[in-house]
């Protein structure tokens, strides 16, 4: 925004109807023909989990999965991906159940401030969908386009490895702590809870 010379903006682009499948749901939006996918997703579709970090394709915060590939939505015209299947971070979880990659990021400290997290999650998810036993090198290459300033990446790699184990079926998915207990009164409602191992 530096400068005082007045340069008139280019004439406003024509409007067009854009449709795509975002997180499994068909959406239709009236967009300008030169709209950036990131803007459409954030301002019109309302998936605010897609983050804007740099607008230059350098930070990876705006990564989304388009037809199976992790791509940067800030470097993508919405028109280019009309009709595609787009997954944002909101589409990773199934209802109240976190995807393995999400619960592992929470569990292993893969997310600190959390701003870069959606981008990392989607880059990692795209990797794990293709390859559920990635090597260290493959993990590094999958997330090389994502910058994280908090974690130093080490715990992110740990999280992705843990999620890969779940994908391979070698580990149990993490149960969310707040899952209500199926039977809150196993011994009847008037039984006091006792120190474990202590005879009643």
């Amino acid at each position: 925004m530096v400068g005082t010379e007045y340069v008139p903006m280019t004439p406003k682009a024509a409007k067009e109807i854009w449709s795509a499948k975002v997180n499994g749901e068909s959406v239709e939006e009236l967009i300008t023909s030169n709209a950036i996918l990131l803007d459409v997703l954030r301002d019109q579709v309302g998936t605010l989990g897609v983050k804007r970090g740099c607008d230059l394709g350098t930070c990876g915060c705006c990564t989304v999965i388009i037809d199976g590939d992790a791509r940067l939505s800030c470097l993508c015209l919405a028109g280019q991906v009309a009709g595609s299947e787009i997954t944002t971070v909101e589409g990773l979880s199934e209802g109240a159940h976190l995807a393995p990659i999400q619960s592992c990021f929470a569990e292993h400290g893969g997310s600190q401030c959390g701003f870069c997290t959606p981008g990392f999650l989607l880059s990692a998810q795209a990797l794990l969908t293709e390859n559920d036993s990635p090597s260290d090198k493959e993990i590094s290459c999958a997330i090389e386009g994502n910058l994280c300033r908090c974690t130093g990446y080490q715990q992110i790699v740990d999280s992705i490895k843990a999620a890969a184990e779940i994908h391979r079926g070698e580990a149990e998915p993490v149960q969310p702590a707040s899952n209500p207990h199926p039977n809150p009164h196993p011994e009847g409602p008037d039984q006091p809870s006792m120190p474990p191992g202590h005879a009643r």
Binding site: L48, G49, V50, R52, V89, A106, S111, G114, F115
Partner: peptide
């Protein structure tokens, strides 16, 4: 004990609201 951050679920689901997410 090693514990996940209490707000990490908000962060991994994209529900954490940062400055520009306030509409």
């Amino acid at each position: 004990k090693p514990l996940p951050l209490v707000d990490s679920n908000a962060k991994v689901t994209g529900q954490a609201w940062y400055g520009d997410d306030v509409r």
